[in-house]
């Protein structure tokens, strides 16, 4: 498969636009199409096997977490009980909560939410994995994101593997000094866990400071004026970028118009008989 090269700015804009798109949509089928499209987009960027495995782990946990939590804690009406986990008469927990149940509507809502979340998560992961930190930084600055914020975002992404390694070392060193994370004394466990953050946080601050000094020593300026003055070698958007972004923008505009029309109809503000098919399409598919 031919790898498609998109400019970092196009990738970021695409992620923002797809975020807007999935917020507009409510139908699971339409959201599923979006999610599959995001996977297709990722596939053309040729991820490595390790990246695919990592993405699958992310997707599994977000899907499972969102569906499970929404199914149990769904609060709106009407709601249909599918399964009772803890009956209301069960001592303490049942009496306190009034029973814990799995609701069909909650399950459905969880699916919708997880499809929304997974679409942006997939696009976001592929953007990060296929974009150089310096290109991401430049793209964010060019998109008028404040330089300091852009640098923070890029540095945070850059340091994820470093932080993971250091966190593992901190936890190991604590355990080698006899500390147990899982024990009866919950207070001590929580305090020990919180203490672990101190060296990790200190390490992050040190790395970020050092990296900040390093890029500043090579002429990068986080303030907009400096950035505009010195960053003259930005790649312009190409036809492919513009085409993809325009298509996405057109989709959003069309769906937004359809949703507005349906909203007016549903709330008795405006109705036109020749738009009946549009109302049906919006209700059923979007």
């Amino acid at each position: 498969m031919q790898q498609i090269h998109l400019t970092p700015r196009a990738k970021i804009l695409m992620m923002l636009m797809s975020g807007c798109l999935v917020i507009l949509l409510d139908s699971p089928s339409a959201l599923l199409v979006c999610f599959l499209a995001s996977l297709t987009f990722g596939a053309v960027l040729k991820p490595t096997l390790r990246q695919i495995r990592l993405l699958l782990v992310f997707l599994f946990f977000t899907t499972w977490g969102l569906i499970y939590s929404q199914a149990i804690f769904y609060n709106a009406s009407p709601r249909t009980v599918l399964l009772t986990l803890v009956p209301p008469e069960f001592p303490f927990i049942g009496e306190m909560t009034g029973g814990i149940r799995v609701y069909r509507e909650g399950l459905f809502h969880g699916i919708v939410q997880s499809l929304r979340f997974n679409t942006t998560l997939t696009i976001g992961c592929f953007i990060i994995w296929t974009t150089q930190p310096r290109d991401l930084l430049r793209a964010l600055v060019r998109l008028r994101v404040p330089g300091t914020l852009a640098f923070m975002v890029t540095t945070a992404l850059h340091f994820i593997p470093v932080i993971a390694n250091e966190a593992a070392t901190v936890l190991r060193s604590q355990r080698l000094r006899g500390f147990r994370y899982l024990r009866v004394n919950l207070f001590a466990t929580v305090r020990g866990g919180l203490n672990s953050f101190r060296p990790i946080l200190a390490g992050n601050i040190r790395h970020a400071t050092q990296l900040g000094e390093s890029v500043e020593s090579r002429g990068f300026s986080p303030d907009a004026e400096g950035a505009a003055h010195f960053q003259t070698v930005l790649t312009g958007m190409r036809l492919l970028d513009i085409g993809l972004l325009s298509a996405l923008a057109a989709c959003i505009i069309v769906i937004l118009c359809l949703k507005v029309l349906y909203f007016c109809y549903a709330n008795g503000l405006y109705y036109a008989s020749w738009l009946r098919h549009v109302y049906t399409l919006t209700r059923e598919m979007l």
């Binding site: 150089q132 930190p133 310096r134 850059h158 040190r206 790395h207 050092q210 990296l211 000094e213 390093s214 890029v215 090579r218 002429g219 990068f220 300026s221 003055h229 010195f230 960053q231 003259t232 070698v233």
Partner: peptide, 22 residues
Amino acid sequence: EQLFCARVEDEIAFGLENFGFP
């Protein structure tokens, strides 16, 4: 702690591009 990019040429180009080298 001072290298920022994934590839060698990108790392070296970073400073040059900041200084506006064509």
